[in-house]
Design a protein around this nucleic acid. Structure first.
Lengths: 104, 104
DNA sequence: TTTCTATTTGGCTAAAATGCCAAATAGCCA
DNA sequence: TGGCTATTTGGCATTTTAGCCAAATAGAAA
């Protein structure tokens, strides 16, 4: 059993890992299919090292897993249903309060 | 219709607003009942100005709303169901993949 | 082995986030 | 008005992020 503070910190860590446009993009793509770093890099258009670091953040948060095959590393979502989750975020943005209920 | 990049950025903004232990605490408390800044401050134990700034972050993200009454400002959740949402985060932390399905 | 491709890590700079204190605002009550 | 209480804002120091380049690693193929 964790205390409340630890819980909050743990939750915040996961949310923080998701809270970046590039990492959200990666999550969306991995929801469709696993991808190697170079695939993601060419889709995103930033330096490979940057993508690698984003993947490392996601992995450390427990959101993705990696599988080395040959000289490539394939990443995939550990929780494929992560995306259902975003409908909510959308609701907040588009604003009314009623919409949210539909998502949850 | 927004393009994909704008969507990702918008989602990231909301997630980022939630990605802090103190702000998650505030969200949990506001889910129970509205609170004025001084209530939250005494519960949290950091400087009032810090709490005020956290609330401002949450408000700008569209997560909370404020209501000034007398010389106090009461904050409340705009989307009271936000918390259902956390079961998922918990699942990621505790790790298996199957658990997640239950939350979503 | 040498070379080439894929990925990660280290180093660095610039930008953003935290949190404190002090000062400014706003509303209440004597 | 004057003094309180509640809240926000500005300024500042410290820490964390993000992203690039260069160097290190790992595996594949010549």
């Amino acid at each position: 059993m964790k205390n409340r503070k630890a819980h909050l910190e743990a939750r915040a860590r996961v949310l923080k890992a998701m809270a970046h446009p590039t990492r959200l993009f990666i999550i969306e793509e991995l929801d469709k299919q696993e991808r190697c770093v170079c695939d993601l890099t060419s889709m995103i258009g930033v330096d490979v090292s940057t993508v690698s670091k984003h993947l490392s953040v996601l992995k450390q948060a427990g959101l993705v897993q990696d599988d080395k095959r040959g000289n490539q590393v394939f990443y995939s979502l550990r929780a494929p249903c992560i995306l259902n989750f975003f409908g909510f975020v959308e609701g907040v943005l588009e604003n009314g309060t009623k919409e949210h209920a539909a998502y949850l």
